[in-house]
Amino acid sequence: MTPAIRTQGLRKTYAHIVAVDGVDLEVERGEIFGLLGPNGAGKTTALEIIEGLRTPDEGDAEVLGQRPWPRDRALLRRIGVQLQASSFFEKLTAAEQIGTFAEFYGVPRADADAMLERVGLTESAGVETGKLSGGQMQRLSIGCSLVHRPELVFLDEPTAALDPQARRNLWDLARGVRDEGATVVLTTHSMEEAETLCDRVAIMDAGRIVVTGTPMRLVRDLDAPVRISLPPDAIEEDEARALPGVDAVETNESGLLLRGASAADILAGLAERRLLNGLQVRGATLEDVFLHHTGREYRA
């Protein structure tokens, strides 16, 4: 089977600004794939090209084995897209909204009601869309993109306006969709979300993909120091500095912070001194990977 998405050398320039600068991407079927990157990195343009809304200046793309542009209605039937904006028929109720989208795909009404239930909006079924809360609108928008059980679904910052409960429910929904065999491509600014939800991520910056892989693999490849914090007065600073594997020590009001390349060496030393109570080990996170690759400057 062809991959869900395969692109080669996508390039798109707007009036001297290179939005997408040679993007090669491959998304397997049945995975949750996260496209990460600071604002202005070119994620939106890249996705718009893949969704068929724009044609690239250079390069090629294949979505579910088809070229996505010019607008291909047969292909659109197989994909689902959720946009950030509240792009709705404002005066329709939540149930009518999702029902209208269901009609576009020739899906029975019952499926629309079931999807409304799945995104937790059955109680708001009769509320005019314009009067829903931000989180409810976002869930409705996700429901509308999934109502026809697409093979490939694009979610644009799907949990941005959601509270923790709704966010976790949405993660379950995304995993459920994947487990039914569909492919999920999402963008997010939450590294926590990317780390827990995505099977693989790609980090994009300045129009290019800078790194791709599973979140765990990326974190490991970063080879970042571990940080071990100890309660105050557990050990003298000088003694700590002398421990095997410790590169640096910091003291602050909440205790001591040890840094080193190998958690195993440091922990062994601490265990010998019976100092394991109350200690915390923190390795690098996907956020460290992200900042490592994209820098700390403010973006657009």
Binding site: L53, A85, S87, E90, F104
Partner: peptide, 18 residues
């Protein structure tokens, strides 16, 4: 104009409707 501003026009382009 409202449909264009809210992104609905673009959203509709991403559905298979003619």
């Amino acid at each position: 104009v409202q449909w264009r501003r809210s992104g609905l026009l673009r959203r509709l382009q991403l559905t298979p409707i003619a």
